[in-house]
Amino acid sequence: MKEVLLVMVSAIFINNVIFARFLGICPYMGVSKRISTASGMGMAVTFVMTFATAITFILNKFVLIPFHIEYLQTIMFILVIASLVQIVEIALKKISPALYQALGIFLPLITTNCAILGVAILSIQNEYSFFISVLFAFCSGLGFCLAIIIFSGIRERIEDADIPECFKNIPIALITAGILAMAFMGFSGLVK
């Protein structure tokens, strides 16, 4: 039980996927203009990340290791993730157009999102068991969600402040992310 708690707290707060590991910065900067799109993106990333980590773990355990083709790890993972995203998207469009309306536009963005592949590879490198690595992926997704929702809250508030001309949107967003990362460093060393 303690180990589960450990993994959860470290994945969400300490080595947060954005602030400590620098994974998934492109969608983080791109999609966080408004809180509604940001939360949509957060949920989509969490969902796909958990799903992808589960499948890549199985793939790794039953295909890569027995056949000693670890070097195919990157290509197999990314292939699975890309196709998975496309299939999920088509299914979503048919089953529930409303949910698709909320999450649909983010799915193509996810294929080029470093966080998904990053978390999958990290969970392999850390040699977690199946349950722990899925939990790790889910909590990293939550960490991403937490970071992007706070960030979009701030960006929406400073949208019409008179920021100097050359600092509008992306540079000021980067500086805000910097200060947020500084704040989250408070959690470092939390887990003994």
Binding site: S36, E89, A102, G104, I105, F151, A183
Partner: peptide, 21 residues
Amino acid sequence: IMNAFVPLLDKWDNYSNGKKW
């Protein structure tokens, strides 16, 4: 960290629409 939550604490927002594929 709590300063970062302030915009959310007194946020108000409306929902934007998605795109086709």
